[in-house]
Amino acid sequence: MNYSWNWAVLVQDPYVQWLVWGTEMTMAISIAALIIALVIGTAIGVLHSSDDRIVRSVMGAYISVFRNVPLLLQMFLWFFVVPEILPGGAGRWLKRDLPYPEIVTSIIALGLFTSSRIAVQISAGIDAVPRGQRMAARASGLSMLQVYRLVLLPQAVRIIVPPLTSEILTIFKNSSIALTIGVYELTAQTQQIQSMTYQGFEAFTAATVIYVTIALLVTLLMRGVERWTALPGTVSGGVSVQF
């Protein structure tokens, strides 16, 4: 193995700047997608736990489709197919006037893909709350919306913090797939450094270290969240969610 080391390449202009931009882009699309995923995933998960069989199967179909098509293909579908099949004005707007189309598209694709996975967790979390509580809450005069908002969801979300943590870690990793539609996130930037300088070892090591650091930060943050939100008298992580 003959390889000429040059770690200095990582702190040279413009490569250090590329690494910073890549990290910022990875953080930005992951966090934006996470917000979408949490909002939509919670809504779908709540509806999936409803007693109405039709609602439940429609939500089940949503989850099934988004979980069983590769994320890379989902990015392509949003990027190349949706603008073509949307009627007239909307399609034209997406193709011509949407600012930063690849970034917006990757956020939507990543957000919806992850929403299906979060929906499964939310729904499992709600199921893990003893059924008597739902009935008791209804019997004491709460509306269905109040039952979810005040009784079921606060407990469900606490129960699913551990699997949610791994889903958040996954979203940062999955954001790398955005490079396939031309987003210059961290992996794309290091790949570019590799092809410009042939210092692949240094470039990929930098990316690996940054991803590991992000993973450690997220894990620490979520452990903090778990501790701060723990209810007295409950054991956290008591329910395991299977996928």
Binding site: K173, S176, T187, G200, F204, T208, Y211
Partner: peptide
């Protein structure tokens, strides 16, 4: 280690490393 990094990065890593290791 493997669980902390994206698969795409792992693919790039080995695409670069395997030929280097084999010479």
């Amino acid at each position: 280690g493997f669980r902390a990094v994206p698969l795409i990065l792992v693919i790039f890593w080995f695409y670069f490393l395997v030929p280097l290791a084999l010479g």
